[in-house]
Lab assay of single mutants.
Amino acid sequence: PQVPQCKALYAYDAQDTDELSFNANDIIDIIKEDPSGWWTGRLRGKQGLFPNNYVTKI
């Protein structure tokens, strides 16, 4: 099955070790969508939390 993905609308710099940094237009694999607004994703071999208001699902 296809892994859900999202595209970064803005760059995000991780504020903690469990967060994921990314650049605008990066494509992130979505591991888990949480109602809190912090999703778990994977990018370039690293997994971490990121704010879903920085991305749009594709």
Rank of each mutant, 00 (worst) to 15 (best):
F22T: 02
F22L: 04
Q15W: 05
F50G: 01
Q47H: 10
S21I: 01
Q5W: 07
N25G: 13
G41C: 02
P51A: 06
T40R: 11
A11L: 06
T17C: 11
V55I: 07
R44L: 10
W39T: 06
G41H: 01
L43Q: 03
I31A: 06
A24V: 13
K32Q: 10
P51L: 08
L43F: 14
C6D: 02
S36N: 05
A14G: 09
L43K: 04
Y10C: 10
N53D: 14
I58F: 11
N23C: 13
T40D: 05
R44E: 06
L49I: 08
I58C: 04
D16G: 10
D26G: 00
R44I: 02
V55L: 03
W39I: 09
I31K: 04
F50Y: 01
Q5G: 03
K57Q: 06
D29L: 06
D16I: 04
F50C: 00
E19I: 04
K32V: 11
T17K: 09
D34R: 09
K7T: 13
L49A: 08
D26Y: 02
E33G: 00
G37D: 05
I27T: 07
A24E: 13
I27K: 08
Y54L: 13
R44Y: 09
F22W: 00
R44K: 09
V55M: 04
G48F: 03
Q5R: 15
P35V: 12
Y54F: 08
T40I: 13
E19H: 15
I27Y: 09
R42H: 10
A24F: 11
E33D: 07
T17M: 13
F22R: 00
K46S: 12
G48P: 01
R44T: 07
A24Q: 10
T40Y: 12
F50P: 01
A8L: 01
W38S: 09
Y12Q: 01
W39C: 06
T40L: 13
Q2K: 12
D16A: 13
L49N: 05
V55P: 02
L49V: 14
A14E: 03
D13L: 09
W38L: 08
C6A: 15
R42P: 01
A11D: 15
D18N: 13
S21Q: 06
T56S: 13
A11T: 08
D16W: 08
K57I: 03
K57W: 04
K57R: 10
Y10Q: 13
N52P: 15
A24Y: 04
E19G: 14
Q47R: 11
Y10V: 11
N53Y: 08
L9N: 08
N23M: 14
L20F: 01
R42Y: 05
K46R: 14
V55N: 03
K46W: 03
N23P: 02
S36F: 07
L9A: 06
F50V: 08
D16T: 14
I58D: 12
